[in-house]
Amino acid sequence: MTDFLILGSIAMAATPLVFAALGELVTERAGVLNLGVEGMMLMGAVCGFIAVASGAHWIVGAAAGALAGACLASLFAALVLGFAANQVASGLALTIFGTGLSALIGSNYVGTPVDKIPAVLWGLDPMVFAALAMSAAIALWLYRTRQGLILRAVGENAEAAHAHGHTVLKVRLLAIMFGGAMSGLGGAYLSLAYTPLWAEGMTAGRGWIALALVVFGAWRPGRVLIGAYLFGSVGVLQLHAQSSGLLAIPSEILSMLPYIATIAVLALLTTRQQQSRAPAALGQAFHRLR
């Protein structure tokens, strides 16, 4: 029974990462690097939380989180697609802005309690299963549909895709918006099911870990899903070690584990071969007249 509980808590710790990393995967597969995941997750977390704290059903809360993430992502899209701005700088701007704006609009909701998303099966809530279903759906869509093929083509060689008559900017816009919605959903899961509370900066670097997971998973949905669950188990291990008090390790050192694990995993896995799997046009701006 305890083993089962641990498995459940791993799934809950992994779910926000699954949503955010899958969204970023689709964005990056279209050739756009969005470093604003952390900011979009925070906006999703605060907007979802405010919706539920104001009496809405949790499904409305989750939708509000996704919408908030997509709205923030549309700002990023305007910069990198409309104004051909540098993607790295624009993504950083998105994170700084999202962190500030979420703290601003959430300042009256710190400490407010909400009802957790109710469990449906094995003590787990529907969002856990939704995240699993999403990863399967995204894998199918990317590799088994014409639209998925076009998205990948845009990410590999935007000029060639354009020459084939595909609208590169439209594909990228949709991919960025989808990535934002998924990040927002991941953030909303944190504030509505995982904690369930709102606190400033509550994502605590999960957006950045999601970015690392996309690299770790070599831009493939299945491997990203596995990576998210591995990271979920690192987090749960840390919480259990902390609460059991068996180990005489200060809690700060245990809290470092996910960050150290991220660095270790990136260092071990980002060989040249792994990196050759990155979408070829990742990070490059596209302008019709060039």
């Binding site: 700088a89 700084i96 802005f97 500030g100 704006l101 601003l104 300042s107 400033e200």
Partner: peptide, 24 residues
Amino acid sequence: PLAVTGVFQGLLLFFLLACDVLIQ
């Protein structure tokens, strides 16, 4: 609220990146 500072700073970077389009 004190968080207004962060919003201002983020906005400034957004607008700057957008205005930079005028250089190229």
